[in-house]
Every structure is written in C-alpha cells, then in structure tokens.
C-alpha cells in the first residue's frame, strides 16, 4: 500500500499511547511502594480483622449508615461479640484521628473519591479552624 509510512507511523503512535503508563511512571518517578497510611498508636485492633478492613471497610460503613439513618439502630455488634457505636466520626475517627494521613492516603493512591465527606465533617478540621 502506498500509505505504508502512514500506517507504520499510526502503529507507533498506538504503541506509545498503549504504553503510556510506563512513560508516565518514568516522568513522575513512581515506585511500587504503597501509600503507607499512618496507623493509630493507641489501639492494636480495629472493629473487624485488618484483612477485612483493608478490602471491604466501605461495605461496613454502608451497613452502619443504613442501620443508623434508615433503621435507627446505633449500636453495631462485631462478629467477636464486642459492641460499637455505629459512627464514622465517633468510632472510626476516634482512633484514626488524622483523616489526611489515614483515609486520604489510600484513597488518593487508589484514585477513589468516596462521598462520605459530603455529609460528614472531619472533627479535626473544625478544631483546626478554631470554631
């Protein structure tokens, strides 16, 4: 075909676009080191095992939201029998006090924007503003 050069050029452009993550990682100096969220120093265990919390904490939070907002059940019994107050800012953020160093690190890393903070406030941000 007389368009051979155009076809090869398009193929090269396609491959450059396809391997874009490699160039992007080069440019941004990305490493495969994780986000390393800052864990609380006072507590050693969370409401559920760490494996579950890492992967599925959003499911638990959604259960809590439905319990509190729709069923008016404010206490949540963990599988190990302990009971907790179903509250994002009251229970989660009591230990994980620093949202920026805990929640946001992984969320930014994984590129997710949960809509928790459209209704909830980060208690630390209120204290910080002095009101």
């Amino acid at each position: 075909m007389r368009d051979r050069h155009a076809i090869i050029a398009a193929l090269i452009v396609f491959f450059v676009v396809l391997t874009f993550p490699i160039w992007y990682a080069r440019a941004a100096g990305t490493t495969s080191r994780g986000p390393e969220p800052k864990l609380p120093e006072t507590e050693k265990t969370c409401v559920m095992p760490v494996e579950y919390m890492r992967a599925s904490h959003m499911k638990l939070l959604l259960t809590w939201r439905d319990d509190v907002v729709r069923r008016n059940v404010r206490t949540w019994i963990a599988p190990d029998g302990k009971s907790y107050k179903a509250s994002l800012s009251g229970t989660c953020l009591r230990c994980h006090a620093n949202k920026a160093e805990f929640c946001d690190r992984c969320h930014t890393y994984a590129g997710v924007t949960p809509y928790c903070w459209e209704c909830h406030v980060d208690p630390a941000s209120i204290k910080g503003s002095g009101t």
């Binding site: 490493t31 495969s32 986000p35 494996e51 890492r54 992967a55 599925s56 890393y109 994984a110």
Partner: peptide
C-alpha cells in the same frame, strides 16, 4: 473485595 492498594502496587 480484594485489597485494592496491594493490587495497585503490583500493577505499578
């Protein structure tokens, strides 16, 4: 749910 952060480490 898998561990998304670990998966991103693998892909990166």
């Amino acid at each position: 749910r898998p561990d998304i952060v670990a998966i991103k480490q693998l892909t990166l």
